[in-house]
Computed example of a mutant assay.
Amino acid sequence: MSFTAIQLRISYSGIRCLLAGLVLGALLSACASPPPGGVQVLDRNNRAAQAAQRRPVTQGQYRVQRGDTLYSIAFRFGWDWKALAARNGIAAPYLIRVGQVIRFDGQPGSRAPVVASAPVATPVPVRPPITSTQTTPARPPATPQKPPKVVQATTPMQPVQRSAGGWAWPTNGAVIGRFSSNGSLNKGIDIAGDLGQPVSAASDGSVVYAGSGLRGYGELVIIKHSDTYVSAYGHNRRLLVQEGQKVKAGQTIAEMGSTGTDRVKLHFEIRRQGKPVDPLQYLPRR
């Protein structure tokens, strides 16, 4: 083969490599650019996307159902309980009643869609007014709802090690699911364990919810620790405390289970002013 032929072959090969590089560069540029319409796909590390995922529901309303508390509603819809109470004019001790409408948009006169509601009662026909001289006995005034009596729980205490902020691990076991800052993923951590294993309060506080009304959490306990922090303990087999009871860090509140999930584990969350935070940043290091 002549020297000229070798040069031509090398030049042709170089041109092919150059063209391939240009095509690849164009493809990568197209992937990095926003698609038509100005919509950009945000990755999980994008702070704007994270903030959007963590925003509370700000449209519509919710009709209180049996078993709800203000704290469980705030927890479900991503609100700080104080802010939700203020938005709806609910004063201390923050009692709500079945059928009461909790608004998220702050517009009591608007006709916003109902996020969830209790069954609507069948209308009752209105009777004509009484024209005789007989008087209808007045109904006794409705008894105001009393706040639950606050008592100290009597369940067993577990020895615990607290962090500088006063938090303790709610149970023993390996962390099998970590917190994700993307609100659509894990809002806490998952801890593996055995069926019936004790679950304890992570800090001092009072039980503000104990039940199974929040989808995806199974048998759930929510503890209010202060005006800033609440913690949640999900997927339990059995709850050992009731709403209104005070608990100490390390005090048993439930037995670990698999309600609402596919394996035995504890789902544990800490929320600061209604927003999920990484529990591992609060718990003592192991």
Rank of each mutant, 00 (worst) to 15 (best):
V247D: 05
T122G: 12
Q61N: 08
V57K: 10
A112Y: 05
G67M: 10
L70V: 00
T133P: 00
M256A: 02
D278E: 03
Q65R: 08
L240S: 10
G38T: 12
Y282I: 03
G213A: 05
T122C: 14
V150Q: 14
P34E: 05
P144R: 07
P279N: 04
G38Q: 14
K187D: 09
Q281I: 01
V64W: 13
Y94C: 04
R47F: 09
Y94H: 12
S72R: 03
Q50I: 12
L70T: 00
T252L: 01
P148D: 07
S206L: 13
V41I: 11
Q7V: 15
T133K: 02
A164Q: 15
E243K: 14
P36N: 04
V230L: 12
R103P: 05
V277C: 00
T171S: 15
G67N: 09
V64T: 10
Q107T: 01
S203I: 05
R111L: 06
K149I: 14
T58G: 00
P276T: 00
S110I: 09
A174L: 12
A86H: 14
L84F: 02
C17I: 15
N182M: 13
P144V: 04
A74V: 02
V160T: 06
V23F: 14
W81I: 00
G173Q: 04
A249F: 11
G165A: 15
H225M: 02
G193M: 03
Q152R: 14
P129A: 12
D105A: 06
N88E: 00
P36L: 15
V41C: 13
K82T: 09
A153C: 03
L266Y: 12
P128V: 04
K82Q: 15
L42D: 01
A74E: 01
D190T: 15
V151G: 02
D262I: 02
A32C: 11
E219G: 02
S231E: 08
V230H: 09
V114H: 10
Q245W: 15
N186H: 09
A249N: 14
Y229R: 04
A254R: 15
T154Y: 10
G25C: 04
G99C: 02
T259E: 06
T261N: 09
F104D: 10
T135S: 13
Q134N: 11
K146I: 11
V221F: 07
L19T: 09
D278F: 13
N88M: 00
L42F: 07
V114R: 13
C31M: 15
I189D: 12
G89K: 01
V247I: 07
Q50G: 03
M256V: 02
A210I: 06
V230S: 13
R16M: 12
N88F: 00
I96R: 06
Q7Y: 13
